Amino acid sequence: MESQIFNSMGLGNLDPAILFFVLIGALLIMIIVSIVQTSRVKKLEKRYNKFMQGKEAESLEDEIVGLFHDNRLIRTENEKNRKDIQDINKRMQKTFQKIGLEKYDAFNQMGGKLSFALCMLDENDNGYLLNSVHSTDGLNYCYSKEINGGVADVELSEDERAALEKALSSTDR
Rank of each mutant, 00 (worst) to 15 (best):
residue 86 Q to F: 13
residue 77 E to Q: 15
residue 153 D to H: 09
residue 167 A to G: 05
residue 131 N to L: 06
residue 25 G to H: 06
residue 18 I to H: 06
residue 110 M to T: 15
residue 81 N to M: 14
residue 17 A to E: 13
residue 134 H to T: 07
residue 89 N to S: 12
residue 30 M to F: 15
residue 6 F to Q: 05
residue 145 K to Q: 04
residue 73 L to G: 13
residue 54 G to C: 00
residue 130 L to V: 13
residue 14 L to A: 07
residue 141 Y to D: 09
residue 157 S to M: 04
residue 41 V to K: 02
residue 16 P to N: 09
residue 137 D to N: 12
residue 91 R to G: 15
residue 71 N to L: 04
residue 129 L to F: 03
residue 76 T to A: 12
residue 121 L to M: 04
residue 32 I to F: 05
residue 172 D to S: 11
residue 66 G to Y: 08
residue 79 E to N: 10
residue 170 S to T: 08
residue 155 E to D: 12
residue 4 Q to I: 07
residue 116 F to V: 10
residue 139 L to D: 13
residue 150 G to L: 00
residue 64 I to F: 01
residue 33 V to Y: 05
residue 155 E to L: 12
residue 20 F to K: 12
residue 170 S to G: 03
residue 40 R to T: 03
residue 165 E to P: 08
residue 92 M to F: 12
residue 103 K to E: 01
residue 166 K to L: 03
residue 19 L to I: 07
residue 129 L to N: 01
residue 43 K to N: 08
residue 140 N to Y: 09
residue 93 Q to S: 12
residue 93 Q to I: 14
residue 110 M to F: 15
residue 150 G to H: 06
residue 14 L to F: 06
residue 168 L to W: 05
residue 126 N to S: 11
residue 67 L to R: 00
residue 41 V to S: 07
residue 146 E to M: 14
residue 11 L to H: 11
residue 4 Q to E: 03
residue 113 K to H: 10
residue 42 K to F: 00
residue 26 A to S: 12
residue 111 G to F: 09
residue 67 L to Y: 00
residue 98 K to P: 01
residue 20 F to V: 10
residue 57 A to D: 13
residue 120 M to T: 10
residue 61 E to V: 03
residue 14 L to E: 02
residue 106 A to E: 02
residue 71 N to K: 03
residue 96 F to G: 05
residue 99 I to W: 01
residue 59 S to E: 03
residue 4 Q to W: 02
residue 134 H to S: 09
residue 44 L to P: 10
residue 151 V to I: 13
residue 44 L to H: 10
residue 142 C to G: 09
residue 93 Q to E: 13
residue 100 G to C: 06
residue 38 T to A: 09
residue 87 D to T: 15
residue 21 F to R: 15
residue 90 K to P: 11
residue 4 Q to F: 02
residue 80 K to E: 15
residue 37 Q to F: 06
residue 129 L to V: 00
residue 85 I to P: 12
residue 5 I to D: 03
residue 88 I to V: 15
residue 67 L to T: 01
residue 172 D to C: 07
residue 132 S to K: 08
residue 143 Y to Q: 05
residue 166 K to P: 01
residue 129 L to I: 00
residue 112 G to K: 06
residue 6 F to V: 07
residue 102 E to I: 05
residue 121 L to T: 04
residue 59 S to F: 04
residue 50 K to P: 04
residue 39 S to C: 08
residue 130 L to I: 14
residue 111 G to I: 12
residue 2 E to K: 10
residue 73 L to H: 12
residue 102 E to Y: 07
residue 58 E to Q: 08
residue 117 A to V: 00
residue 101 L to I: 14
residue 22 V to D: 09
residue 78 N to P: 10
residue 108 N to M: 08
residue 171 T to K: 08
residue 88 I to R: 15
residue 165 E to A: 13
residue 100 G to F: 02
residue 64 I to N: 00
residue 110 M to P: 14
residue 47 R to N: 08
residue 134 H to N: 04
residue 118 L to E: 00
residue 153 D to W: 02
residue 8 S to T: 05
residue 146 E to F: 13
residue 80 K to Q: 15
residue 169 S to F: 05
residue 30 M to K: 14
residue 173 R to A: 03
residue 33 V to W: 05
residue 60 L to I: 02
